[in-house]
């Protein structure tokens, strides 16, 4: 009798565990929208966190400012050199955008995947819970942010918005090894674009892995990797990183390209959200 009871208890425990797992799986993996009570709790608590952290962040900023003052002359020289080139780049940019507009008119294109506006935000908390690879930023629905918008830093693409409340948003980083998170990318080799899929992140070597590239294409080291704009979410031409090396996949059929990002994912403090403009004339 006791043995049968134990069996039942074990079965019930297993059933409960499976139910809990499927519930958690459904909540964590699917990019569901936050409910109004969740938004309210999240916004209120993070508002308090933001207020409390303000003086500490101020001190931190001042400390880093003081540290940066040591290298100020060196930076000035570099910026001076860059500034001399900027007029030339601006002129070229103006010319290119003019050409692009003309071509769009010619082809009757009302919307391209490269059109976006920018919104800067500050990181409120970073990767709490260690394994989630997420950031929380201080801008949300009220600032026009929506789910699936691309997020970048000045050193390249870092991820996309997965959850939005009134005043905060959650950014899922590209370092999260999520099978639903594949991004279409292009590698520029000698003025030609080679297309592939950014599929995962190798945490040990700090590189992204790009798959789906045919064996007979030679990929050079230091080639630029950017987004294609083919996906529904990421605009085209967003910088991701540079090719670090090339290996073969498990079946020796395709190349696996290792891409090194310039972004330091461990200490991101400020980000920019690329708000997609759905420009439609008709």
């Amino acid at each position: 009798m006791k043995k049968t009871n134990k069996k039942y208890i074990f079965l019930i425990a297993l059933l409960i565990f499976s139910l809990v797992l499927s519930f958690i799986g459904n909540v964590v993996i699917t990019d569901r929208k936050l409910t109004p009570p969740e938004m309210l709790i999240k916004d209120s608590v993070l508002f308090v966190v933001k207020i409390v952290s303000t003086p500490f962040n101020y001190i931190k900023d001042k400390a880093s400012e003081a540290k940066e003052k040591d290298n100020i002359y060196k930076k000035y020289e570099t910026i001076k050199q860059e500034a001399e080139k900027i007029e030339m780049v601006n002129a070229k940019n103006r010319e290119l955008s003019k050409e692009l507009d003309e071509m769009k008119t010619l082809l009757e294109l009302n919307n391209t995947l490269a059109e976006e506006s920018y919104l800067n935000a500050t990181v409120i908390n970073r990767n709490i819970g260690y394994f989630y690879n997420t950031l929380t930023i201080d801008k949300g629905k009220n600032s026009g942010i929506d789910v699936n918008m691309a997020v970048v830093t000045n050193k390249g693409l870092i991820g996309k918005i997965t959850k939005v409340s009134g005043t905060t948003s959650v950014v899922k980083l590209l370092t999260a090894n999520d099978s639903n998170n594949k991004i279409s990318v292009k590698i520029t080799v000698d003025d030609k674009d080679v297309y592939g899929l950014l599929s995962s992140y190798d945490e040990k070597n700090n590189v992204y892995l790009v798959e789906g590239i045919s064996e007979n294409i030679e990929i050079k080291e230091q080639s630029l990797v950017t987004t294609t704009g083919f996906s529904q979410y990421f605009p085209s031409g967003v910088y991701i990183g540079k090719v670090k090396g090339v290996t073969k996949d498990n079946f020796d059929l395709a190349q696996l390209v290792e891409v090194k990002s310039d972004v330091d994912f461990a200490s991101i403090n400020f980000v920019t959200v690329l708000k997609r403009e759905a420009k439609k004339d008709e």
Binding site: V20, V27, V28, K42, L46, N125, T162
Partner: peptide, 16 residues
Amino acid sequence: LIYDICLSNTWGINLF
């Protein structure tokens, strides 16, 4: 629950 909603952005993992 508060931790799940506000910080880790999940539901149930920390509860469990």
